[in-house]
Computed example of a mutant assay.
Amino acid sequence: METIMVYLDNMFAGLPRTPEVERMKQELLSGMEDKYLELKQEGRSENEAVGIVISEFGNIEELMAELGIQPDDMQEIVPTLTEEEAHAYIAAKRSAGFWTGLGVWLSAIGVAFMILINTLFESLGSSTEQDSLGIGSVLGMSGLFVLVAIAVGMFIYSGMKLGRFDYIEKEFQLPRTLLMTLQRSKASFALTYRVALITGVCLCILSPVFVFAGAYLNDTYAVYGTSALLATAGIGVFLFIYYGNIQGAYTKLLEYQHLNAAKREEARVERAVGAIVWPLATAFFLFTGFVYQRWDINWAIFPIVGILSGSFSNVYHLVKDKKSS
């Protein structure tokens, strides 16, 4: 039956998506299913039953004539994703999310390592204070740049893994059986995604507790608390990116294909803005940290940017809706 469904989806891919066409498609599917089951009861093999059903139920020209559709009304044929392509895309998104999330966490660990090393060397005896500060700065900066370099490599690698799926950004369709399979997979993943999201939010919200607890003891422990804050918040961000990528893959396959050209353009604009805003936020985070030594509070840049990104999305949709009305 899967072969018949795929054949029917491809057969109707170029026809206008009108209620009449959808009704005809459902009637054909019902008739094909009945004929297929009848042939199977007669003892026909799978291939024989499928071949007879496909050959007996007309062709695209007959359908167009019955529906009164002229060749000029035909839409551009939308490619159909295979099961292998869909699962390969989900696997690539999962892998890209892992490496991107790990890269973000390593970047946070790099900053935490630099702060920790500088603080440890500052706590050495006063007789060697100048040498300790110099060694601590060199070791801290070296560790930071090494970890950031590794993180950048992970970002590039994750982007390369998704590069071969650029065609999914365009319009496509899914066979009925694959659509149902992906819907079940997304439903079973929903609980995992919610738990990961809640855990990540809790980690980000609770991470400043390390700073407050350290400040309660003394200033030195407050700096250690900042390192713990970055490491903990980094884990939360990793959860957002990793599980968000998997959820995004299901959303893209199940929902993106139904968006019209305007909606797809909105999605592209939002991604383009995000690609600019988040690197700028990271650069501002590092600048305020290195120049003004405000690692204790500049972590708030990222949640603020997240809120502003969501606000931009809402405002953009309102402006587009107002222009179209």
Score class of each variant (00 low, 15 high):
E2N: 11
G14E: 01
T18R: 10
E27Q: 10
L28K: 09
L28W: 08
D34L: 12
L37Q: 15
N47L: 09
E48I: 05
E48Q: 04
F57W: 07
N59C: 08
E61V: 10
M64A: 08
M64V: 11
I69D: 01
Q70E: 10
D72P: 08
D72W: 11
Q75R: 08
I77L: 12
A88N: 08
I90E: 02
I90Y: 05
S95E: 10
G97Y: 01
W99H: 04
W99S: 02
V104S: 03
A108T: 05
S123C: 11
S126I: 15
S127R: 14
Q130L: 15
L133C: 10
L133M: 13
G136E: 00
L139R: 00
G143Q: 00
A151V: 01
S158W: 00
G163W: 03
M180D: 15
S185N: 13
I198K: 06
T199R: 04
V201T: 09
V201F: 04
L203Q: 04
S207M: 01
V209T: 07
F210A: 03
V211N: 02
V211C: 00
N218Q: 11
A222L: 08
A222W: 02
V223L: 06
G236E: 00
G248S: 07
A249I: 05
T251V: 13
H258D: 14
H258C: 14
E266S: 14
A267C: 13
R268T: 09
R268W: 10
F287L: 09
F290D: 09
Y292M: 13
W295P: 05
W299P: 01
V305N: 00
V305P: 02
G306L: 03
Y316K: 07
L318W: 14
V319G: 09
